[in-house]
Design a binder for these strands. Structure first.
Lengths: 126, 126
DNA sequence: CATTCATATGAACAACTATTCATATGTTTA
DNA sequence: TAAACATATGAATAGTTGTTCATATGAATG
Protein backbone atom coordinates (compact mmCIF):
# COMPACT_ATOMS: atom_id res chain seq x y z
CA UNK A 1 0.00 0.00 0.00
CA UNK A 2 2.76 2.41 0.97
CA UNK A 3 3.38 3.47 -2.61
CA UNK A 4 -0.21 4.46 -3.15
CA UNK A 5 -0.78 6.62 -0.11
CA UNK A 6 -1.61 10.20 -0.93
CA UNK A 7 0.00 12.41 1.67
CA UNK A 8 -2.26 15.41 1.29
CA UNK A 9 -5.92 14.79 1.68
CA UNK A 10 -8.27 17.44 0.39
CA UNK A 11 -11.68 16.18 1.38
CA UNK A 12 -13.54 16.94 4.62
CA UNK A 13 -11.44 20.03 5.22
CA UNK A 14 -13.09 20.85 8.51
CA UNK A 15 -11.23 18.31 10.60
CA UNK A 16 -7.62 18.46 9.55
CA UNK A 17 -6.58 15.56 11.71
CA UNK A 18 -6.42 13.74 8.42
CA UNK A 19 -2.77 14.07 7.62
CA UNK A 20 -1.97 12.81 11.08
CA UNK A 21 -4.27 9.90 10.30
CA UNK A 22 -2.38 9.18 7.12
CA UNK A 23 0.88 9.05 9.02
CA UNK A 24 -0.72 6.65 11.47
CA UNK A 25 -2.04 4.34 8.74
CA UNK A 26 1.08 4.48 6.59
CA UNK A 27 2.80 1.12 6.62
CA UNK A 28 0.09 -0.56 8.68
CA UNK A 29 -1.89 -1.83 5.71
CA UNK A 30 -0.02 -4.86 4.32
CA UNK A 31 1.21 -4.64 0.74
CA UNK A 32 -0.91 -5.75 -2.19
CA UNK A 33 0.62 -9.19 -2.28
CA UNK A 34 -0.12 -10.01 1.34
CA UNK A 35 -3.62 -8.55 1.02
CA UNK A 36 -4.20 -10.76 -2.02
CA UNK A 37 -2.89 -13.84 -0.21
CA UNK A 38 -5.07 -13.10 2.80
CA UNK A 39 -8.23 -12.51 0.80
CA UNK A 40 -7.55 -15.67 -1.21
CA UNK A 41 -7.28 -17.59 2.05
CA UNK A 42 -10.56 -16.23 3.40
CA UNK A 43 -12.28 -16.91 0.09
CA UNK A 44 -11.51 -20.56 0.71
CA UNK A 45 -13.41 -20.41 4.01
CA UNK A 46 -16.22 -18.52 2.31
CA UNK A 47 -17.95 -21.51 0.80
CA UNK A 48 -20.45 -23.82 2.48
CA UNK A 49 -19.14 -27.01 0.88
CA UNK A 50 -15.55 -26.34 1.89
CA UNK A 51 -16.57 -25.43 5.42
CA UNK A 52 -18.51 -28.68 5.74
CA UNK A 53 -15.50 -30.62 4.51
CA UNK A 54 -13.34 -28.93 7.14
CA UNK A 55 -15.85 -29.70 9.89
CA UNK A 56 -15.80 -33.37 8.92
CA UNK A 57 -12.00 -33.34 8.92
CA UNK A 58 -12.08 -31.85 12.43
CA UNK A 59 -13.36 -35.26 13.53
CA UNK A 60 -11.32 -37.62 11.43
CA UNK A 61 -9.16 -38.29 8.45
CA UNK A 62 -11.62 -39.18 5.66
CA UNK A 63 -11.44 -40.47 2.10
CA UNK A 64 -13.06 -38.68 -0.82
CA UNK A 65 -15.95 -41.04 -1.38
CA UNK A 66 -16.91 -40.96 2.29
CA UNK A 67 -16.89 -37.17 2.22
CA UNK A 68 -19.17 -37.27 -0.80
CA UNK A 69 -21.57 -39.64 1.00
CA UNK A 70 -21.56 -37.75 4.28
CA UNK A 71 -22.17 -34.40 2.60
CA UNK A 72 -24.54 -35.89 0.03
CA UNK A 73 -22.69 -34.45 -2.92
CA UNK A 74 -21.04 -35.80 -6.04
CA UNK A 75 -17.52 -37.13 -5.86
CA UNK A 76 -16.48 -34.62 -8.49
CA UNK A 77 -17.75 -31.59 -6.59
CA UNK A 78 -15.94 -32.77 -3.44
CA UNK A 79 -12.77 -33.48 -5.37
CA UNK A 80 -12.75 -30.01 -6.92
CA UNK A 81 -13.14 -28.41 -3.51
CA UNK A 82 -10.49 -30.61 -1.91
CA UNK A 83 -8.14 -29.34 -4.57
CA UNK A 84 -8.86 -25.76 -3.51
CA UNK A 85 -8.37 -26.65 0.15
CA UNK A 86 -5.09 -28.35 -0.65
CA UNK A 87 -3.80 -25.46 -2.71
CA UNK A 88 -4.28 -23.16 0.27
CA UNK A 89 -2.53 -25.75 2.44
CA UNK A 90 -5.50 -26.24 4.72
CA UNK A 91 -5.57 -30.00 4.10
CA UNK A 92 -3.12 -32.73 3.17
CA UNK A 93 -3.70 -36.16 1.78
CA UNK A 94 -2.12 -39.59 1.65
CA UNK A 95 -2.85 -42.54 -0.54
CA UNK A 96 -3.90 -45.90 0.93
CA UNK A 97 -4.49 -48.36 -1.86
CA UNK A 98 -7.21 -47.03 -4.13
CA UNK A 99 -8.41 -44.44 -1.65
CA UNK A 100 -6.98 -41.07 -0.85
CA UNK A 101 -7.39 -39.85 2.70
CA UNK A 102 -7.59 -36.17 3.52
CA UNK A 103 -6.85 -34.52 6.85
CA UNK A 104 -6.33 -31.05 8.30
CA UNK A 105 -2.92 -29.59 7.61
CA UNK A 106 -2.86 -26.80 10.08
CA UNK A 107 -4.01 -25.70 13.52
CA UNK A 108 -5.03 -22.24 12.31
CA UNK A 109 -8.00 -23.75 10.56
CA UNK A 110 -9.64 -24.55 13.85
CA UNK A 111 -8.98 -21.18 15.43
CA UNK A 112 -10.09 -19.19 12.39
CA UNK A 113 -13.36 -21.07 12.26
CA UNK A 114 -13.78 -20.85 16.04
CA UNK A 115 -13.41 -17.07 15.93
CA UNK A 116 -15.89 -16.89 13.08
CA UNK A 117 -18.43 -18.88 15.07
CA UNK A 118 -17.93 -16.64 18.08
CA UNK A 119 -18.62 -13.58 15.98
CA UNK A 120 -21.83 -15.09 14.71
CA UNK A 121 -22.88 -16.14 18.22
CA UNK A 122 -22.50 -12.55 19.42
CA UNK A 123 -24.98 -11.43 16.78
CA UNK A 124 -27.53 -13.84 18.18
CA UNK A 125 -27.04 -12.57 21.72
CA UNK A 126 -27.65 -8.94 20.83
CA UNK B 1 -26.53 -31.78 8.59
CA UNK B 2 -27.92 -34.51 10.81
CA UNK B 3 -30.94 -35.09 8.62
CA UNK B 4 -28.82 -35.69 5.56
CA UNK B 5 -26.40 -38.25 6.91
CA UNK B 6 -26.61 -41.63 5.25
CA UNK B 7 -26.02 -44.27 7.88
CA UNK B 8 -24.89 -47.05 5.60
CA UNK B 9 -21.99 -46.24 3.38
CA UNK B 10 -21.37 -48.56 0.47
CA UNK B 11 -18.20 -47.18 -1.06
CA UNK B 12 -14.66 -48.29 -0.21
CA UNK B 13 -15.91 -51.57 1.27
CA UNK B 14 -12.47 -52.74 2.28
CA UNK B 15 -12.16 -50.62 5.40
CA UNK B 16 -15.43 -50.84 7.22
CA UNK B 17 -14.48 -48.30 9.83
CA UNK B 18 -16.83 -46.03 7.91
CA UNK B 19 -20.00 -46.46 9.89
CA UNK B 20 -18.04 -45.74 13.02
CA UNK B 21 -16.79 -42.62 11.25
CA UNK B 22 -20.33 -41.58 10.49
CA UNK B 23 -21.30 -41.91 14.12
CA UNK B 24 -18.30 -39.77 15.01
CA UNK B 25 -19.15 -37.04 12.54
CA UNK B 26 -22.88 -37.08 13.20
CA UNK B 27 -23.88 -33.86 14.91
CA UNK B 28 -20.42 -32.33 14.66
CA UNK B 29 -21.04 -30.54 11.39
CA UNK B 30 -23.17 -27.45 12.15
CA UNK B 31 -26.58 -27.24 10.53
CA UNK B 32 -27.10 -25.63 7.12
CA UNK B 33 -28.06 -22.30 8.65
CA UNK B 34 -24.92 -21.94 10.73
CA UNK B 35 -22.77 -23.12 7.84
CA UNK B 36 -24.39 -20.50 5.63
CA UNK B 37 -23.85 -17.77 8.22
CA UNK B 38 -20.22 -18.79 8.66
CA UNK B 39 -19.44 -18.92 4.97
CA UNK B 40 -21.16 -15.56 4.49
CA UNK B 41 -18.95 -14.12 7.20
CA UNK B 42 -15.75 -15.45 5.64
CA UNK B 43 -16.85 -14.23 2.21
CA UNK B 44 -16.73 -10.75 3.67
CA UNK B 45 -13.07 -11.25 4.60
CA UNK B 46 -12.39 -12.73 1.19
CA UNK B 47 -12.08 -9.46 -0.70
CA UNK B 48 -9.00 -7.27 -0.96
CA UNK B 49 -10.86 -3.96 -0.72
CA UNK B 50 -12.72 -4.96 2.42
CA UNK B 51 -9.55 -6.29 4.02
CA UNK B 52 -7.77 -3.02 3.33
CA UNK B 53 -10.64 -1.09 4.87
CA UNK B 54 -10.42 -3.25 7.98
CA UNK B 55 -6.65 -2.73 8.22
CA UNK B 56 -7.16 1.02 8.10
CA UNK B 57 -9.85 0.78 10.76
CA UNK B 58 -7.41 -1.18 12.95
CA UNK B 59 -5.53 2.12 13.29
CA UNK B 60 -8.32 4.63 13.58
CA UNK B 61 -11.91 5.59 13.11
CA UNK B 62 -12.07 7.00 9.56
CA UNK B 63 -14.64 8.77 7.40
CA UNK B 64 -15.67 7.48 3.99
CA UNK B 65 -13.88 10.05 1.87
CA UNK B 66 -10.60 9.50 3.74
CA UNK B 67 -10.90 5.77 3.19
CA UNK B 68 -11.40 6.42 -0.50
CA UNK B 69 -8.30 8.64 -0.62
CA UNK B 70 -6.11 6.32 1.42
CA UNK B 71 -7.05 3.28 -0.64
CA UNK B 72 -7.10 5.22 -3.89
CA UNK B 73 -10.58 4.11 -4.85
CA UNK B 74 -13.87 5.81 -5.66
CA UNK B 75 -16.16 6.92 -2.86
CA UNK B 76 -18.89 4.74 -4.32
CA UNK B 77 -16.83 1.56 -4.30
CA UNK B 78 -15.82 2.17 -0.68
CA UNK B 79 -19.37 2.95 0.32
CA UNK B 80 -20.68 -0.26 -1.22
CA UNK B 81 -18.09 -2.30 0.66
CA UNK B 82 -18.71 -0.49 3.93
CA UNK B 83 -22.32 -1.51 3.58
CA UNK B 84 -21.28 -5.15 3.31
CA UNK B 85 -18.99 -4.81 6.33
CA UNK B 86 -21.76 -3.20 8.32
CA UNK B 87 -24.30 -5.86 7.41
CA UNK B 88 -21.99 -8.53 8.82
CA UNK B 89 -21.54 -6.36 11.93
CA UNK B 90 -17.81 -6.01 11.47
CA UNK B 91 -17.98 -2.20 11.51
CA UNK B 92 -20.21 0.49 12.97
CA UNK B 93 -20.59 4.11 12.05
CA UNK B 94 -21.59 7.43 13.53
CA UNK B 95 -22.43 10.71 11.89
CA UNK B 96 -20.46 13.86 12.64
CA UNK B 97 -21.84 16.71 10.62
CA UNK B 98 -21.61 15.89 6.94
CA UNK B 99 -19.16 13.04 7.47
CA UNK B 100 -19.82 9.50 8.58
CA UNK B 101 -17.10 7.82 10.58
CA UNK B 102 -16.61 4.08 10.51
CA UNK B 103 -14.89 1.96 13.12
CA UNK B 104 -14.43 -1.69 14.03
CA UNK B 105 -17.40 -3.25 15.76
CA UNK B 106 -15.86 -6.35 17.14
CA UNK B 107 -12.69 -7.83 18.57
CA UNK B 108 -13.02 -11.04 16.54
CA UNK B 109 -12.06 -9.14 13.42
CA UNK B 110 -8.53 -8.71 14.66
CA UNK B 111 -8.07 -12.29 15.76
CA UNK B 112 -9.56 -13.78 12.61
CA UNK B 113 -7.24 -11.72 10.45
CA UNK B 114 -4.28 -12.42 12.75
CA UNK B 115 -4.84 -16.18 12.42
CA UNK B 116 -5.11 -15.82 8.66
CA UNK B 117 -1.80 -13.98 8.52
CA UNK B 118 -0.15 -16.63 10.67
CA UNK B 119 -1.33 -19.33 8.31
CA UNK B 120 0.14 -17.48 5.36
CA UNK B 121 3.40 -16.86 7.21
CA UNK B 122 3.78 -20.59 7.83
CA UNK B 123 3.60 -21.22 4.12
CA UNK B 124 6.53 -18.90 3.61
CA UNK B 125 8.62 -20.65 6.27
CA UNK B 126 8.19 -24.11 4.80
C1' DC C 1 -3.46 -57.44 -18.48
C1' DA C 2 -8.24 -56.31 -18.62
C1' DT C 3 -11.50 -54.81 -15.40
C1' DT C 4 -13.05 -52.47 -11.52
C1' DC C 5 -12.79 -49.07 -8.08
C1' DA C 6 -11.36 -44.40 -6.23
C1' DT C 7 -10.05 -40.08 -7.46
C1' DA C 8 -8.79 -36.12 -10.51
C1' DT C 9 -9.54 -32.97 -14.18
C1' DG C 10 -11.21 -30.03 -18.14
C1' DA C 11 -14.94 -27.68 -20.34
C1' DA C 12 -19.35 -25.53 -19.98
C1' DC C 13 -22.93 -23.16 -17.76
C1' DA C 14 -25.41 -20.69 -14.20
C1' DA C 15 -25.08 -17.90 -10.25
C1' DC C 16 -22.82 -14.49 -7.82
C1' DT C 17 -19.89 -10.25 -6.97
C1' DA C 18 -17.14 -5.83 -7.33
C1' DT C 19 -16.75 -1.75 -9.66
C1' DT C 20 -18.52 2.12 -12.32
C1' DC C 21 -21.76 5.57 -13.50
C1' DA C 22 -25.58 8.33 -12.61
C1' DT C 23 -28.33 9.97 -9.24
C1' DA C 24 -30.58 10.33 -4.65
C1' DT C 25 -30.41 11.47 0.34
C1' DG C 26 -29.16 14.21 4.03
C1' DT C 27 -26.32 17.90 6.31
C1' DT C 28 -24.24 22.36 6.55
C1' DT C 29 -23.50 27.05 5.21
C1' DA C 30 -23.86 31.36 2.72
C1' DT D 1 -33.53 28.08 0.93
C1' DA D 2 -30.26 27.37 -2.63
C1' DA D 3 -25.75 25.63 -3.19
C1' DA D 4 -22.07 22.74 -1.80
C1' DC D 5 -20.44 18.80 0.40
C1' DA D 6 -20.36 13.84 2.16
C1' DT D 7 -22.38 9.63 1.68
C1' DA D 8 -25.66 6.08 -0.11
C1' DT D 9 -27.88 3.49 -3.62
C1' DG D 10 -29.71 1.26 -7.99
C1' DA D 11 -28.72 -0.53 -12.47
C1' DA D 12 -25.43 -2.31 -15.62
C1' DT D 13 -21.41 -4.83 -16.74
C1' DA D 14 -17.30 -7.61 -16.52
C1' DG D 15 -15.06 -10.94 -14.00
C1' DT D 16 -15.14 -14.82 -10.88
C1' DT D 17 -16.75 -19.21 -8.91
C1' DG D 18 -19.22 -23.82 -7.92
C1' DT D 19 -21.38 -27.59 -9.86
C1' DT D 20 -22.21 -30.96 -13.45
C1' DC D 21 -20.95 -34.02 -17.06
C1' DA D 22 -17.78 -36.63 -19.49
C1' DT D 23 -13.56 -38.55 -19.32
C1' DA D 24 -8.77 -39.43 -17.74
C1' DT D 25 -5.45 -41.31 -14.35
C1' DG D 26 -3.84 -44.58 -11.24
C1' DA D 27 -4.05 -48.57 -8.12
C1' DA D 28 -5.72 -53.21 -7.00
C1' DT D 29 -7.61 -57.64 -8.26
C1' DG D 30 -9.04 -61.71 -10.64
Amino acid sequence: MAEKIVYEVECCEEHLVHNELLRKVDGKVPDEEEIADLSDLFKVFGDATRLKILFVLFESEVCVCDLAEILNMTQSAISHQLKVLKQSKLVTNRREGKSIFYSLADSHVRSIIAQGREHIEEDVKK
